[in-house]
């Protein structure tokens, strides 16, 4: 599998990891859980830089905001009682559906994002949460919105830098705030055929004050459905609005046909999942549609 790999590095600092990564050039690859790197087994790889000993495995809360280290595993997120309380547990739900138990024990949140699969399960809930990513370069650190992080399938704005942390700013709270994560796969531990996440807040009259809708596996990158969000925001939530928003989200998608589904089916499922996500949010926020 990695017969041509010459070195497996286990640096203990971010600085050292970055140095090894640069020294290795385009033949060096970062590895954490290995659930993508090992499966792909790129024959070009000559050195692997293991980042699981950089102290990047943590889930921290400060005020209403959260910081999750890049090498935190899906299993750790899945079993985090604290994260379950965040945003109706949509991130926990997404992590839970990510492959099998064995995979979740290895796979990391940073890896799920840096791999830049349009189908990444955690991307949609994190987009809904306005998450940011902290990226460490040799000289500096920068923070950018997750929405700007994905460029195209397999490609991020990371360059030769290292994704070290995922920041989740304090989300809207309260009884009239609700969240939902929806996933359609072929099996229970499958990659998403389509996934969708939504979050919204309504006022006492059922008017939507704030709305986020994100989609996975229906475009080159995980996507915010901004037109659908705009449609919902400021209007009274009802069945018809949910249908309209779902149809709008489906229009924003640009799915492809692959082994898992046709483009037409994905677009249609995009509508169905957004409808279900918004309906579930509405129900949780106490609105009757």
């Amino acid at each position: 599998m990695f017969d041509l790999v010459e070195a497996f590095h286990r640096p203990s600092s971010i600085r050292e990891a970055l140095r090894l990564l640069h020294a290795g050039g385009r033949r060096a690859r970062i590895v954490a859980g290995g659930t993508d790197v090992v499966v792909r087994a790129d024959p070009e790889i000559r050195s692997l830089v293991d980042i699981t000993r950089l102290g990047l495995t943590y889930i921290k809360r400060s005020g209403g905001a959260w910081a999750i280290g890049a090498t935190t595993t899906m299993a750790q997120i899945e079993h985090s009682a604290a994260l379950r309380a965040l945003a109706g547990g949509i991130l926990v739900e997404a992590a839970k559906g990510c492959g099998s138990v064995q995979l979740r024990n290895m796979a990391t949140l940073g890896g799920n994002l840096a791999n830049a699969s349009p189908a990444a399960d955690t991307a949609a809930p994190l987009l809904v949460l306005d998450a940011q990513v902290v990226v460490a370069g040799e000289r500096s650190r920068r923070t950018l919105a997750l929405a700007d992080f994905f460029l195209k399938p397999g490609e991020t704005a990371l360059g030769k830098a290292l994704l070290v942390e995922i920041l989740i700013p304090a989300p809207p709270r309260g009884a009239r705030t609700a969240w939902s994560f929806q996933k359609l796969g072929r099996t229970e531990s499958d990659i998403s055929v389509v996934n969708a996440a939504a979050g919204l807040q309504v006022d006492g009259k059922g008017v939507c004050k704030w709305c986020r809708i994100a989609l996975g596996a229906v475009a080159p990158v995980p996507l915010r459905a901004r037109a659908a969000e705009a449609l919902v925001t400021g209007r009274k939530l009802d069945g018809s609005l949910v249908e309209q928003a779902a149809a709008e989200a489906a229009r924003e998608a640009s799915p492809i046909t692959d082994i898992r589904a046709t483009a037409e089916y994905r677009r249609e499922m995009c509508r169905v999942l957004v409808k279900r996500a918004l309906a579930e949010c509405a129900a949780r926020a106490g609105c009757s549609l």
Partner: peptide, 28 residues
Amino acid sequence: LIEELLLDGQGRPRNASFLDYKIFSAKD
């Protein structure tokens, strides 16, 4: 419900891996 080895127009396998050819696991 899910198992089928698929071929492309040249007779090449399209899903010769467990990522693409799914079988049901205990969870399913």
